[in-house]
Measured scan of single mutants.
Amino acid sequence: MASQGTKRSYEQMETDGERQNATEIRASVGKMIGGIGRFYIQMCTELKLSDYEGRLIQNSLTIERMVLSAFDERRNKYLEEHPSAGKDPKKTGGPIYRRVNGKWMRELILYDKEEIRRIWRQANNGDDATAGLTHMMIWHSNLNDATYQRTRALVRTGMDPRMCSLMQGSTLPRRSGAAGAAVKGVGTMVMELVRMIKRGINDRNFWRGENGRKTRIAYERMCNILKGKFQTAAQKAMMDQVRESRNPGNAEFEDLTFLARSALILRGSVAHKSCLPACVYGPAVASGYDFEREGYSLVGIDPFRLLQNSQVYSLIRPNENPAHKSQLVWMACHSAAFEDLRVLSFIKGTKVLPRGKLSTRGVQIASNENMETMESSTLELRSRYWAIRTRSGGNTNQQRASAGQISIQPTFSVQRNLPFDRTTIMAAFNGNTEGRTSDMRTEIIRMMESARPEDVSFQGRGVFELSDEKAASPIVPSFDMSNEGSYFFGDNAEEYDN
């Protein structure tokens, strides 16, 4: 783990906690998980779902989305002020799938948001429990990260689609708070800032007046979040320049895209947490497990152990491969979309394939898809080993990566060399080191050039047997250095459309 220093740990961010010791953190995270579980059980009762239907990941996603929508204050306010045809701002819903006479049927349900809020609060001892809501947002974000390569979004903001390893959390809503900021990748933060800068260039009043003052505060806050992700002084200094700019424009845009590229080699610290679907927490609570009393951590053995003992089902389209669908969801559960496939294969105990080789589309089923041909199958979400999630980018030494994705962002704290394609990355730096950030740029390029592919990161860190909950005997895996390590390699994943 990167030293926490003055930073709060993510469990504290996750639970809005002030400084807590490890036991208190485990208890408050457990409380959050228990609340999600209780809410899910109650919703299944309301909807009269069978046990099997309640364990269907598509039903879980609909129920999670309903509660997130019920608590989305800004959108609710907007919907009330701008009524649109056929949208009731006070209601929320989605597809629920039921097994009827041996076939899967889709039923569109509609609930009062007020009623959903009441059920959620009741499951969370009367609190709004925003930490639990954020947790579900991060699960949705991790699922998107594993399912889609955001080529269009990258290109629109002047970045290269091969930089997708920097895009963790790119679909997280803005209201996801400190826990959300911690899991956002460098590219995601750059993209958010670039969008602001572009608006400022096109709209003279963007930075002016009372609204402009708020915009400015948001801009500086985002700059500080991004600065905190960088691990070298030169990158941090460049972020200070971007933040202090009187009138952010093209120079800042250039600096930010430069920094994003540099992060492929001088990786930023991005938190990883295993956020599971509500249909995993519900049955665990129903079986009598007391998360608050037992304590829970999002970055240790607990999620692995929970998945070892969970039964989750998914709808499967006619030509999809259930094992591939399982891999997709497994990666999402562990926030591992940008991790090295060699490491993932070792931990999972079966070969993890790149996205383009998977015969599976996303987990969600569109409303126009034919239910007649839908089957369902068990998702295999178990693992051979477990490993500690990392909050750091690993040290800054790398190795060759593949054509589709030119770097990785480690999820697990496991000893290995970190793949990246130096030639491709360095070719993108057209040696432009003039301007006010020239000395920093020169320094950053120097550090990137001296990074050695064969150097090892996370020295001495290994994986653990599932029986080793105290992480007492690390097993340090050895990897084939020459092997392909990137998930979005030469990829044809669908595009994420909101």
Rank of each mutant, 00 (worst) to 15 (best):
V155M: 07
P474A: 12
S473G: 04
F458I: 12
A70G: 14
E449N: 07
L264T: 09
E443T: 09
E252T: 10
C279P: 02
G356N: 01
K227A: 12
E107P: 06
A70M: 06
G94D: 05
R355E: 03
I36L: 15
L193P: 01
I316H: 02
I57C: 14
N59L: 01
I365Y: 04
R162M: 13
P419L: 15
R389L: 04
A271W: 00
M440C: 06
D290G: 11
L172D: 02
Q308L: 09
K7E: 10
A178G: 14
G249R: 11
F489D: 05
A85N: 04
V100N: 12
V343F: 03
E465Y: 01
G431P: 09
V270L: 09
Y281L: 12
L266P: 00
F346G: 05
M239S: 05
E53N: 05
Q459P: 09
S345N: 10
D255G: 10
E24A: 06
R65G: 13
Y385N: 13
L47N: 07
R118Y: 08
Y385S: 09
P474V: 03
E14V: 07
R355S: 10
D455V: 11
I265T: 10
R162D: 06
E484I: 06
E465I: 01
N21Y: 06
P161E: 00
I301F: 12
M137H: 13
D88A: 02
D16K: 00
R261G: 10
L172R: 01
D421G: 09
S376P: 13
T411Q: 03
A271H: 01
I25R: 07
K31H: 15
A179F: 01
G200W: 11
R75C: 06
S287V: 03
D128A: 03
I301T: 14
K113T: 07
G268I: 13
A403P: 06
A336V: 13
K351F: 02
M189Q: 04
K103P: 06
A182G: 14
S457H: 09
S84K: 01
L110P: 13
D145W: 05
G187A: 14
N144Q: 14
N319T: 06
Q58R: 07
A153K: 11
P354A: 13
R8C: 03
I408K: 05
T232I: 06
